[in-house]
């Protein structure tokens, strides 16, 4: 096969995670190769005044760069962007980030739904949405939107999830393509683009 990575249409990955997130992201992100060909954008629910520690901690343990998304910054390949605490994170058509202080969406800011729905507007069918462990139903509307636009939906297997509420809600809301245990999700992403 010649240049099989060209075959993969997916241009971005969005991930939503809540309770149990640090552990879950640690299981996934270190598996991504340094030259992972698309941007990964993550909403992790956390306290309003939580600082940059989270990104720093993950960055030290990953081959890809992990950082907080900055306003108007362009989403680049090989980089994992975290939504800053207390702001919603959205993607624009020119693939730059916007932040907003719009009120909490179903108790969450940043909200997974907000990121997923805006990313679905931008990437349409060329988007992968992933829902991981969490104690609420944020993200299930967003994942349904990604599916409606023809994107790919992946959900962490509720069996074995630290908190299964969020994966279960997502499975109910959307026709999910893959239900995978945590340990397999990182490899799944890495394999998808492997030359």
């Amino acid at each position: 096969m010649t240049r099989p990575s060209k075959r993969v249409p997916y241009e971005a990955v969005v991930i939503g995670v809540s309770a149990g997130g640090l552990h879950a992201l640690r299981a996934i992100l270190p598996r991504l190769p340094k030259n992972f060909p698309v941007p990964v954008v993550v909403v992790q629910h956390r306290g309003a005044d939580s600082d940059g520690f989270f990104a720093e901690y993950l960055d030290q343990r990953c081959l890809v760069q992990v950082k907080e998304a900055e306003e108007k910054e362009e989403a680049a390949p090989g980089t994992v962007y975290l939504a800053p605490a207390n702001y919603h994170l959205l993607l624009e058509d020119d693939r730059t980030f916007s932040l907003t202080l719009e009120s909490r969406v179903r108790f969450a800011r940043p909200s997974i739904d907000v990121l997923f729905e805006s990313a679905a507007d931008v990437y349409g069918a060329n988007l992968i949405g992933i829902i991981l462990t969490g104690a609420n139903d944020d993200g299930s509307r967003g994942l349904a939107t990604i599916k409606k636009r023809g994107g790919l939906a992946v959900v962490q297997d509720p069996v074995g999830a630290e908190v299964d509420t969020m994966p279960k809600a997502a499975l109910q809301a959307a026709k999910v393509d893959f239900v995978l245990p945590l340990a397999a999700i990182g490899q799944f992403l890495a394999n998808l683009y492997e030359e």
Binding site: L90, L91, E92, D93, S98, T100, V114, E117, S118, D121
Partner: peptide, 9 residues
């Protein structure tokens, strides 16, 4: 204004 924001609102 930011289009992503406008679309949502």
């Amino acid at each position: 204004y930011s289009l992503a924001h406008l679309r949502r609102r």
